[in-house]
Design a protein around this nucleic acid. Structure first.
Lengths: 86, 86
DNA sequence: CCCGATTTGTGCGTATGTATC
DNA sequence: AGATACATACGCACAAATCGG
């Protein structure tokens, strides 16, 4: 359970942080990650996807930029109402 | 009392957190840190070994990965039965 | 029952070094 | 030469749980 590392493929001409962000956005839009749920922390994301912590941070920043999550300092990052696709 | 900072040598090609984890594992296997005893807190470890708290956290995580300790949130980290050396 | 100290958990920012593309 | 990515390391702040007085 919870194993889905194959999302990351360093050989693809797509940035790792974008690949992971896309995967998480998919999980949000399909409801696998429900609104209000807490996203895994940077360290956990790094371990789950087999990426570095710095990259995990870029993933979260990307998700924030997409308006998919909100981060509460010292608490965590939570799924928010996703905007329309586009 | 309790001064043993020379364990840490940033110039060595061995990560600081590994150096400290090795030192603690030694203390566990020699019985200096008996099973059931409470390991010093992250802040204390940081001060004792002259490292940052973040690094002390990685030390504890490493010890957990080695199966040498168990951590109880908001309580502390305790020495557990060490597995066979390998 | 509340207050403060302690401790782990988590986040943010930054820096260094290496490797790859 | 530069960007991406990885791993380590330092430092700081706050949250939440626990425990003792």
């Amino acid at each position: 359970m919870g194993d889905q590392e194959p999302v990351v493929n360093p050989n693809l001409p797509v940035y790792v942080y974008v690949q992971v962000a896309d995967a998480i956005e998919r999980d949000i839009r399909t409801g696998r990650l429900p609104v209000g749920a807490r996203l895994a922390g940077e360290q956990d994301l790094a371990e789950q996807y087999g990426i570095a912590r710095g990259t995990a941070r870029r993933v979260v920043q990307e998700l924030r930029d997409r308006g998919l999550v909100v981060t509460l300092p010292s608490k965590g990052t939570y799924i928010s109402e996703p905007p329309a696709e586009g």
